[in-house]
Amino acid sequence: MLRIEKLQAWYGPSHILQGVEMQVGRGEIVCLIGRNGAGKTTTLRSVMGLAGRSTGSVTFEGTSLLPLPTHRRNALGLGYVPEERRIVQGLSVRDNLRLGLLASTHKRREQDVIAEIAETFPRLAERLDQDAITMSGGEQQMLAIARAMVSRPKLIMLDEPSEGIMPVLVDEMFALFARLRDEGTTILLVEQNVELALGIADRAYIMDQGMIVHEGPAKALLADADIQERYCSV
């Protein structure tokens, strides 16, 4: 579904990605792990067209992404929840959700979406008219995910969704990811919480210094303390 080949990316003069090779198949949860600064976030941003200069090849269902502007990539069915969540200050929860619906390619009725949100994210449904930025970190993360999901992306990329969130909410969130996969959404997950991520993922890639250094079934990596120690311990 998503195929990344020889991806290189630069931020200014610094050469961040040095030939990333990855694939995400339909219906999988794939997680991308590695130390801080390994290039995980840059990989996602590059796929979304937000990194600096990128070369190589990134295709999504056969369409080459690198020449496309960010909004066109979204229209192809790519969702992205950035690490900073980017809840828009001064907008209500409802308006933040609406933003996810406004792109001309997503024709869904607002009432239907709100009803769906109420089911999946009851906490958000209670706070529709609240200024979104006043919610807790966990609620904001839920909103960021919900906002990316309202357009029903085929593949959603999540960057560090568990960061700074209460453990009970993290469990709830990961249960949601598993459910989304079962309903047919493909997920590419960047996560610091390695055990948790490998626990729900089908496959995993380990990244170090801008390259993929290891890949394999999540279960095998979960059992391999040596690899985890080498590439993931802080």
Partner: peptide, 10 residues
């Protein structure tokens, strides 16, 4: 406030 997230949302 945030042009980037607007782009990300399509």
């Amino acid at each position: 406030r945030d042009p980037q997230i607007v782009r990300i949302l399509g």
